[in-house]
């Protein structure tokens, strides 16, 4: 799949933002006044900024309100609905914490649940696609949720939670790659089933329908990026593991904290890039590619 910058930024930033909102809603840390203002400002900037970035790849962003209507069947619509609900509830909770110095815990807990549900809905947009076997497995929502909640814990300085979550996230990511590398081969879809001619002999794509490229090839048969995938995997895991070591420094302070966050974010963006670039869509089979 084509790794579109807007979608990579959207899923990475909003994941981090909703991860922060999750911890803030639960009262970790239980802040009020100016320090609450600072935390919430960052969390909303990331989550709302990410959502806005996601509209950049739309053909008709001005019609976005229609995307709230089909929540009965569509994960993309559900994501939009849950995100707005979550942001509204957390907005009320934040207003209470900042202006009234009161933390309404019930509101916070509901907001926290809606925040992780938003990330889950985002992940399900990809997970539901049988056409991309690498995404169509349980590790996809698991890794989205783990990256969001661990990043949120890092941003809200909940190191007791961040450290174990990082380790689990890395483990699940390794599992996702192990399974994902086999996913297309074990999905049962190949050029034989795609053409229905498989039982007659070996089928080979002889001539494509067009000599140039087209929307399908640009969007779904993105193979160029896979060349350095192995190196990028190593880099991504190193970036993700880096905060683990930084945070062992006694009394890390703001600068080291910020460095840890940036390293984490770089790791998440690299992983997201790989998530798209490595994903094989079955339509590639019609073109003799994967």
């Amino acid at each position: 799949m084509h790794p579109a910058t807007s979608v990579i930024l959207f899923t990475s930033l909003s994941g981090l933002g909703f991860g922060m909102l999750f911890w803030l809603g639960l009262g970790f840390p239980d802040v009020t006044g100016w320090s609450a203002f600072a935390f919430f400002a960052v969390a909303f900037a990331l989550s709302v900024g990410g959502l806005l970035a996601s509209t950049f790849h739309l053909g008709h962003p001005e019609r976005f309100l229609k995307a709230f209507t089909q929540w009965r069947s569509s994960w993309l619509s559900r994501e939009a609905v849950i995100a707005v609900c979550g942001l509204t509830v957390m907005g009320l909770y934040a207003a209470g914490a900042v202006f009234l110095g009161e933390t309404f815990r019930v509101l916070g807990v509901i907001g926290a649940i809606l925040s992780v549900l938003t990330v889950y809905a985002t992940a399900m947009i990809y997970t539901q696609l049988k056409t991309v076997p690498r995404w169509n497995q349980a590790t996809t929502p698991a890794i989205f949720l783990l990256l969001s909640v661990s990043g949120g814990a890092l941003m809200t300085n909940q190191l007791w939670a961040a450290l174990p979550l990082f380790i689990v996230a890395i483990a699940v990511q390794l599992l996702a790659w192990k399974r994902g590398d086999q996913a297309l081969a074990t999905s049962g879809t190949d050029i034989g089933t795609a053409t229905g001619l498989g039982d007659r002999g070996t089928v080979r794509a002889f001539e494509p329908p067009h000599t140039g490229n087209n929307y399908l090839m640009r969007e779904m048969v993105h193979v160029i990026g896979r060349k350095h995938a192995m190196k990028l995997r190593v880099i991504a895991i190193a970036l993700l593991a880096a905060p683990l070591f930084l945070l062992f420094i006694p009394s890390p302070g703001h600068v080291i904290g910020a460095v840890a966050v940036l390293l984490h974010l770089a790791g998440v963006v690299t992983l997201r890039w790989l998530f798209f670039a490595e994903a094989e869509h079955v339509v590639g089979i019609y073109y003799g590619k994967r």
């Binding site: 053909g59 008709h60 229609k66 056409t131 929307y215 019609y286």
Partner: peptide, 26 residues
């Protein structure tokens, strides 16, 4: 007139039967 041009339907089709028009964004 309702399509926002998100492209998700084209991802969901296994056969490559949907194409986003680059001029119209639908």
């Amino acid at each position: 007139s309702s399509c926002i041009g998100c492209g998700l339907c084209a991802w969901a089709c296994p056969y490559g039967a949907r194409e986003m028009d680059q001029a119209e964004g639908v």
